[in-house]
């Protein structure tokens, strides 16, 4: 007579492991962490560019040159660019997922979004790092005062 082996209760049982990646969890967490940092970066940006001094009326090429002459504002703006673009891109991805129901529409909208985001991030990064505050041959009246000091 063969013995029937009955496994002890609950042995060998494990809850079905999720096969999904942790991407959505990281995206959720990223929105919160980048959000807090962006509150500081963007309110700082708005204070310096829209509130202080003459506000928006003071902004011109020389104003930008004066800011980006300092690595502090270069890093500030670079961080703001990357975090805001990734935060905004993920936000729009969420909205596309919520409202675009056809797979083709979802795919198309996402592709447009990602291409636009990559172009803007790459362009913005290049502008910050290749910016010349005193371009040769430019009208000196339009440049920052430190360009003519030398």
């Amino acid at each position: 007579m063969s013995t029937t082996s009955i496994p002890a209760p609950r042995t060998g049982y494990s809850r079905h492991k999720s096969t999904r990646s942790k991407f959505e969890m990281f995206a959720w967490l990223f929105m919160r962490i980048s959000g807090v940092v962006l509150v500081i970066l963007i309110f700082g940006h708005l204070f310096v560019n829209l509130w202080a001094g003459e506000g928006v009326q003071a902004i011109d090429f020389g104003f930008v040159a004066g800011k980006w002459a300092s690595p502090f504002w270069q890093i500030w703006d670079l961080l703001m660019l990357w975090l805001a673009m990734l935060h905004g891109t993920n936000g729009l991805r969420t909205i596309i997922m919520d409202y675009a129901e056809k797979p083709g529409t979802r795919m198309a909208l996402q592709m447009i979004l990602y291409i636009a985001s990559v172009i803007v991030i790459v362009l913005g990064t290049l502008v910050i790092f290749t910016f010349d505050p005193c371009p040769a041959g430019a009208d000196p009246a339009l440049l920052a005062s430190f360009c003519s000091a030398a």
Binding site: D60, F61, G62, V64, A65, L81, A84, M85, G88, A116, V120, L123, G124, L126, V127, T130, F131, P135, A138, D139, L142, L143
Partner: peptide, 16 residues
């Protein structure tokens, strides 16, 4: 933000 990065990128074109 998309527009703002593009308008700021004009600093690489010319001050004018």
């Amino acid at each position: 933000l998309l527009v703002h990065v593009l308008d700021t990128a004009l600093v690489r074109v010319s001050p004018e």
